[in-house]
């Protein structure tokens, strides 16, 4: 199936999803979180040899988040990217790891790094983070990477640099 055929298949079933064809090997769909499970089921039914390539979060600032799902269909030579836009300080969307079990750890990682809740996920224990960073969501832009643990060291807090650089 070529790119136009894939777009037709998806827009016929879900008329309100946004489509962007990036190149002949990559199509991007922007999907609402209420139909994400149905769209991923359609990905599963449409492509015979498809792998869940990746899933990840993006912090867009101002309590806006995005979850991206990447699928690679080897037979159609096509990357299917599904974008889900979320809002709020505790965003959530339904988990899809029961459709493609390879997404389980990606969703687990997105949960611990961004604080995005995947409802219905069987196992949301922290995957990569040490215990002291659990619940701090280090991949959010609001997380202070440098000097975030300075309070534990007992060292004096360094003054912020003056605006506009040093005085001339």
């Amino acid at each position: 199936m070529d790119a136009a055929g894939i777009v037709r298949t998806f827009t016929t079933k879900f008329p309100d999803i946004d489509v962007k064809t990036i190149n002949e090997h990559h199509i991007e769909f922007t999907v609402g979180k209420d139909i994400i499970r149905d769209v991923i089921t359609l990905v599963d039914e449409t492509f015979p040899e498809v792998i869940p390539e990746s899933a990840f979060g993006v912090d867009l600032g101002d309590d806006k988040y995005q979850v991206n799902y990447m699928f690679w269909s080897h037979k159609d030579r096509m990357i299917i990217q599904l974008k889900v836009n979320l809002e709020g300080s505790n965003p959530s969307l339904p988990a899809c790891c029961d459709i493609f079990s390879g997404l389980e750890w990606h969703e687990r990682e997105t949960h611990e790094m961004f604080g995005i809740m995947f409802t219905g996920h069987p196992d949301l224990r922290p995957l990569l983070l040490p215990d002291e960073l659990v619940g701090k969501y280090p991949m959010r832009k609001s997380f202070q990477t440098d000097r975030s643990r300075q309070a534990e060291t007992g060292l004096p807090v360094r003054k912020p640099r003056p605006e506009g650089g040093a005085k001339k």
């Binding site: 792998i51 869940p52 390539e53 690679w72 080897h74 079990s101 390879g102």
Partner: peptide, 24 residues
């Protein structure tokens, strides 16, 4: 293997010629 998201030699050993050098 496709469900788990395996790729490379792990899936080529199952007879699926999934190889980005050729596919893309």
């Amino acid at each position: 293997a496709l469900r788990w998201g395996l790729s490379g030699p792990n899936i080529k050993a199952c007879g699926i010629p999934m190889d980005l050098r050729k596919d893309q």
